[in-house]
């Protein structure tokens, strides 16, 4: 067991390192010059830009640049923009914003609670989806069940951002069913927090729960036909207990695995949600940085996003190995 977790941990760390290398290469070797961004041609002389270039270490070999950067992630470093101008970037240092010359990591951490609050909707659609799936499985073959299967096909075929956009335009702006409120932190005003996120959560839940309803319906039908369910019924265990305690426990395992794998989809969903509902989270910050050409913010977002996906996959694998012993042995 411990051996399996260690092996998965090592490969997760390797994946994170490889991802950080890709991100680093993309932004250092990519066809853009940070010195140009920091100091545009009309404000800066050629020599001054060369100085910035030099003090950022861009003239050094790529491997050395990467190691300097990676060291900064763990112990922090001073980022220097030419003589007499350097910014202290404490660990974890993911770079300095080109626009306000502040360390990127704390800026993103400020925006983090909003993104996490949206992602909470993810757990709601999981729960709602499983409940609907179980109900459909119990009423298998009825018109309710057929209606559910048909609607899951249609809803999951429409792009998420269209659903979110139309919900925002019509439910908020036109008909005023949901009020147009901006995000407030949970610690400041819990009611305002929930009020601002009510519609994003609703849209996320309605849109994504149908997929999980379909998965859990299939998996529930399978486990309801198992021998141990028949045995439990034969022993006179009540139907609700059979469903909730015996069948559901086995049926929910593959559904949770899919939820873990689907984490990337949820992340993409939050970027669209932030953009459409105007919530200032990490995704919207990154989108805004694109027009400003603020590469460090974007590279940090990309890195943080992929670390989250790796962690989610790792957690799912470990949880799965507890639930299903066969995984550990392979």
């Amino acid at each position: 067991m411990i051996g399996y977790i260690l092996r998965r941990l090592v490969s997760a760390v390797l994946v994170v390192i490889a991802t950080s290398m890709i991100v680093f290469l993309l932004f250092t070797l990519g066809p853009s010059d940070p010195a140009q961004r920091l100091c545009s041609a009309d404000r800066c002389t050629e020599e001054r830009r060369a100085l910035i270039h030099q003090s950022l270490g861009l003239d050094k070999p790529v491997v050395e640049q990467y190691l300097t950067w990676a060291k900064g992630v763990f112990v922090g470093r001073d980022v220097s923009y030419g003589p007499g101008f350097s910014v202290d970037c404490p660990a974890p240092c993911l770079g300095i914003s080109y626009i306000n010359k502040e360390p990127v990591f704390p800026t993103l951490m400020e925006r983090f609670p909003a993104t996490i609050s949206i992602a909470l909707g993810g757990f709601m659609y999981l729960i709602v989806g499983v409940i609907i799936g179980v109900l459909a499985a119990r009423r298998r073959g009825t018109s309710t069940d057929r209606g559910l299967v048909a609607s899951t096909l249609i809803i999951s075929a429409i792009p998420y951002y269209l659903v979110a956009l139309l919900a925002y335009l019509y439910l908020v702006l036109k008909w005023g069913i949901f009020s147009e409120t901006s995000y407030v932190p949970l610690t400041e005003d819990p009611i305002g927090w929930a009020g601002a996120l009510a519609l994003p959560w609703l849209v996320l839940t309605v849109y994504f729960c149908v997929t999980y309803a379909r998965f859990s319906r299939g998996s529930m039908i399978e486990s309801l036909s198992e021998d141990y369910v028949r045995t439990a019924r034969a022993m006179g265990v009540s139907e609700s207990k059979v469903v909730a305690k015996h069948a559901l426990r086995a049926a929910v395992v593959p559904v949770i695995t899919i939820f873990g794998i689907d984490f990337a989809t949820l992340l993409a969903g939050t970027v669209f949600t932030e953009a459409i509902f105007g919530i200032n989270g990490i995704g919207r910050t990154a989108l805004a940085s694109i027009t400003q050409g603020d590469l460090p913010i974007i590279s940090a977002t990309v890195l943080i996003g992929s670390v989250f996906i790796v962690i989610a996959n790792l957690l799912v694998d470990i949880i799965y190995s507890f639930l299903d012993p066969r995984v550990r042995l392979s």
Partner: peptide, 10 residues
């Protein structure tokens, strides 16, 4: 572990 949306952002 590196979804396309992040790639497009980059």
């Amino acid at each position: 572990s590196f979804p396309f949306l992040l790639g497009a952002l980059a």
